[in-house]
Amino acid sequence: MNSKIGILYATVDGQTLKICNVIKEVLIEKGNSVELFSIDDFDRKIADFDKFVIGSSIRYGKHNPKIIEFIKEHKQELDNTQNAFFSVNLVARKPERATPETNPYFIKFLETIDWIPNISAVFAGKLDYQKYPFTDRLMIQLIMWMTKGPTNSKTKIEYTDWDKVKEFAVLLNNF
């Protein structure tokens, strides 16, 4: 069955949007109608869609506050629609932290909201020190040092597992 699917996202450096576009491509290939919205541009109703997906990146250990507020304000609508949520963060670069059950940011996220998505996923993001403002670069380097990640200021690594992203999209399609 072809569905009308809405995807809402918040991104800091663009990787969450890139992931959303891959999900969108897979869903369109499967015959669905897909609309993509930034958290800053969403002006529709969740009920306009058969399925609704929310994706958010992490910065300094937290998901975008606008995404959290959106979920709190629209919990009833989300519960009445087939829904999904995915988190994008660098901690997920480690296989033992790459699932909703093992990712500390995802676990903390679920503890702060009164909503459990029907389908959820965690994807590793992209590390690109050159792209970050000075203060962000220093903070991310500190976090990476603490988590035994790369700290060289020239480091640019895309950790996203694109096969995992496509599998998530197929799961959404079949849901």
Rank of each mutant, 00 (worst) to 15 (best):
Q76E: 15
T102R: 12
R93I: 10
I23L: 10
M139G: 00
I107V: 15
R44L: 07
I5E: 14
D50I: 04
E111P: 06
K108N: 10
G125C: 00
L78E: 01
E101M: 08
T160V: 13
M146D: 05
T135L: 14
K94L: 12
I23F: 06
V34N: 03
V122Y: 02
I28T: 07
P95S: 11
P117W: 03
F85S: 01
L110F: 00
M139N: 00
K66S: 12
Q82K: 15
T99R: 07
P104M: 11
V34G: 05
F109G: 01
F70L: 09
H74S: 05
V12G: 11
P133T: 11
G61W: 04
A84N: 05
I140S: 03
I140W: 00
F134P: 13
S3I: 04
K18H: 10
F85L: 03
E77W: 09
R97P: 12
L172C: 00
K126F: 04
E167R: 14
I19C: 06
D40H: 14
S87V: 02
I113A: 03
L17T: 04
Y129H: 09
L110R: 12
G6S: 01
V26C: 12
W115V: 07
K94H: 13
K166R: 14
E167G: 07
N103E: 07
D13G: 07
A47L: 14
W115E: 08
A47P: 10
F123S: 03
F175C: 08
L127Q: 02
K24W: 04
F106Q: 10
A98P: 00
D163R: 12
A121S: 15
I46F: 02
L36R: 09
A124K: 03
A124V: 04
E77N: 13
F106R: 08
T81P: 01
L127F: 00
D79R: 14
I71S: 02
T160E: 09
I7M: 08
F106M: 11
T112Q: 14
Q15Y: 11
D43S: 14
G149M: 06
F123L: 03
T81V: 03
S33K: 12
M1R: 12
M146N: 08
R44V: 06
V165W: 11
K4L: 10
F37H: 09
F52R: 09
I54T: 05
P150M: 11
S57R: 06
L36D: 07
R97S: 15
K4T: 13
L8W: 06
K75V: 05
I157Q: 02
T135R: 08
F134W: 15
T16W: 03
I157P: 03
I7L: 11
V34I: 08
P133D: 13
G14Q: 02
